[in-house]
Design a protein around this nucleic acid. Sequence first.
RNA 1: GGGCCGCUAGCUCAGCUGGUAGAGCAACAGACUCUUAAUCUGUGGGUCAAAGGUUCGAUCCCUUUGCGGCUCACCA
Length: 527
Amino acid sequence: MSEIQNQSTHWADITADKIIREKGDKALYTCASGITPSGTVHIGNFREIITVELVVRALREKGKNVRFIYSWDDYDVFRKVPKNMPDPEKLEKYLRFPITLVPDTTGRAENYARANEKAVEDILPAVGVFPEYLYQAERYRASYYAEDIKHALEHRDEIRNILNEYRTEPLPESWWPVAVFSSFTNKDTTTVLDWDGEYGITYRDDELGKTETIDIRKTPNTKLPWRIDWPMRWVKEGVDFEPGGKDHLTEGGSYDTSKNVVKVFGGEAPVTMRYDFVQIKGHGGKISSSSGDVVDLYDVLEVYPPEIVRYLFVGTRPSSEFAISFDLDVLKIYEDYDNTERIYFGLMKVNEKKAEKEKRIYELSQIDDKNIPTEPGYQIPFRHLCNYLQIYSGDVEKVLERFPDATESQKERLRVRMKCAWTWLEKYAPEEFKFALRGDGDLYEADDKEKAAIMELADFADKYLDELSEKEFSEYIYQTAKDNEMENADFFRLIYQALIAKDKGPKLASFLKACGRDRVVEILRRY
RNA sequence: GGGCCGCUAGCUCAGCUGGUAGAGCAACAGACUCUUAAUCUGUGGGUCAAAGGUUCGAUCCCUUUGCGGCUCACCA
């Protein structure tokens, strides 16, 4: 029964096969992801989540039972104040605190970490991602890992030797595999002095010089350092797959040491996969992290519908770097997605190998794999859609009236798409791409000769615009220019000025047709 | 210093389990006197970074070199 040949060459399917091969046939596979919510969770962090989600989906499609966990490492230390957070002076006072004890200066949640977490948890369902969240602060503070910390303490030398393998400065003899937040100040500026061989730890608060002995079964203040914490949790949850950024997956990186430390805890390392970072293109001055602004999933979803956001990640191997674009490339991305969709529905012929690949990408791009569209989207180029939207000043329903043949499901998808298109037009589109039809009383100052030419075109439009094809009508445009002894270039400029107060605009014949006879005639007749 | 990734047409890149190369844009020619990265048709263009090796056969696997980038060796 497991002999079913899966022909898919998609990386998610290949990875799923690899997990099954390396971990054996299991009743339950656990796939994990996780990050530290030390600031706004940006789109680069999303790559890890979606990578796991796709592998989870691939495993489930192979009939496997899968647990998808997402660990919030919210008991990590608050190291620096991100520049995009309000009230930095206040946050400054909480440096070295665990992020779960830092206040949320945005007023969205009970604490800093939670605010960042909530933003993600609220939006992930929109892109079809439903993990089980684990909160490490809550667990550590409830001494959930007390026995594991004790285990680490018992294997202090062994762990130190593993970590020292890749360190330039070996850890000192006095080092202990545990970190303590001071119960006096909440900060991690402490030094562990001793362990009693059981559950008692004595530490010194380095700022105050005070010492204290705490019981790891009762204190909320202990945690394991990252390179021990990670492998410990692999064992705790039985993790079979967890990807990592290239900072983790390099020789001497945390995966390297963790795969050895995990043996101390009696387990083995999960199958992993390295993902590269995501770049941002065309996001104005908001690109650099030094400016403090980060691009998160909300920003991307403003411009791309959920399935296209997924498509960006599905279609790129995780190990390749790619850029999410907010500039004119957006048009190409939409067109690429539409091509993939046409291939899926057989509307576009390509060779079989390519077709299989594209179909799989299309399936995995859908937010609900049990509810994949049964018909393609309404076939209209994104560029054209942008023009329609601008003609109707962003009124989505008015645009839809122009597509009476669209089905309900197509209209639903168009609504989402137009909302994105409109946001893109307003926030990111280059000026030359944008226009607005002139309103009442807003006239181009035309001379008599120009007025005559405009009127002639108005008359032609009144009679023929809706009946003739684009190509046929463009003949009239040239004819009108000729009749009025105007150069084509001048005539085009005149019409654009009359309609949208610009020298250039969308390809004229199709633009006029998109505007519709009534609008065109109404505006031109004002002259 | 270690490790990883990349080097394929003018540009951006596909090509992934080895069978002597592809798509978009650009260029050129024509179609319609043409406007906003406008439309259609057609054409040209690559010693697959270099040198060795394995193989019947290498862009693909191995070794070395060059160039570019990233990352670790602090913390998470």
